[in-house]
Design a protein around this nucleic acid. Structure first.
Lengths: 200, 200
DNA sequence: CCTACCGATCGGTAGG
DNA sequence: CCTACCGATCGGTAGG
């Protein structure tokens, strides 16, 4: 009918590109994204695809944003109703485990993969990844501080130490799920979380 | 003098290739290794370089072996004199922290980077990485079991859970060192280890 | 170990 | 969004 594509069509195409890119990047890395491959899998031309972003680096940055949106929706977005303090912190961590357990992305946690890939480089992509990690730590910090102020965690809790340990639990979970395909890994993650956040 | 290179020369050249490759791979990934770049940085031809390995995949497998040799030398190799049991386990973990703290490789832990890069793929490289991880877990398991049998760890110690937690500490250490360049990270790792293996 | 080459693919652009 | 193209680089080979 209409020979001219609408802005809504363009947005939809852009979203299709990002969805596919995020899946590929989680499994094979942000550098494994190539314009030619994406275009072929989506049945469009390289130029048409690149027109949505301009450069490969802009595409990578858009994928980082998309990954953050998915994570936001699947982890903190799922526990907004949880009561403030330690219960919220526990709910967020459980949603985090569940997110990895459900294999929302084919390659596991995008941020773990991309961070390991880019932490030795410089540039906007690395900076964007570091920024997302910092935002997430700030979220965790807020919940931990509240739990402390509510008396649900000991007053001498070392907040940064707890963030360190929680991240370690999640990195190990991703490792055992992705490399070993160990179905016991989520159980281990939950046990560690119970130990860190007070069993039960 | 001698127009003909000796077998010893060839071995030395091979070692130079592997040393450079391991450094690059730790920082930029095993796929970031390209024959052309290596040849240029070493002042030799691509064909000359490739002659030592045959294919890029064979080079990648050789780099995995080289990484294992370095790790073996720098971690378990440094604590061979430590007494058996919990003290040995603690010494190994301390050597592990120290290995990352000293930045033996420019990009941090090669296995962390390479595992995150290849865990979503198939093939010999992924298998080799999984095998190295399994060997290392076996080492840890032996030390943990001894510590339990010596009565230095509780008799109901969940060995696989402890291995999971120890790996999490190291993955978090690598993350905070490489992405955040956080100088407090080794201290946090040691605190977590003390908590897992009994303080002091 | 080298030179000289191969086909394929990379990111990106011109022009429509 | 397309076709048609660019120079650069990829892994690898032939032949010495």
């Amino acid at each position: 009918m209409s020979p001219r594509r609408s802005a809504a069509d363009a947005r939809e195409t852009r979203q299709r590109i990002l969805d596919l890119s995020l899946g590929i990047a989680s499994a094979e890395g942000l550098e494994g994204l190539t314009i030619g491959r994406l275009a072929a899998e989506l049945g469009m031309s390289k130029a048409g695809l690149l027109g949505h972003f301009g450069t490969k680096e802009a595409l990578q940055l858009a994928v980082v944003d998309e990954a953050a949106a998915v994570f936001q929706r699947e982890v903190p977005g799922r526990v907004r109703q949880a009561p403030s303090g330690l219960r919220h912190l526990r709910a967020v961590c459980e949603a985090w485990v569940s997110y990895l357990e459900r294999n929302v992305l084919p390659g596991g946690c995008f941020f773990t993969a991309a961070t390991a890939e880019f932490d030795g480089r410089r540039g906007p992509v690395r900076d964007a990844l570091a920024g997302m990690n910092a935002l997430w730590r700030r979220d965790l910090r807020i919940h931990i501080r509240r739990a402390v102020s509510f008396g649900e965690l000991p007053p001498d809790t070392d907040v940064d130490q707890l963030i360190y340990d929680l991240l370690g639990v999640m990195l190990a979970l991703n490792h055992f799920l992705q490399l070993e395909r160990d179905p016991a890994a989520p159980h281990r993650a939950r046990r560690s979380l119970d130990r860190l956040l007070g069993g039960r």
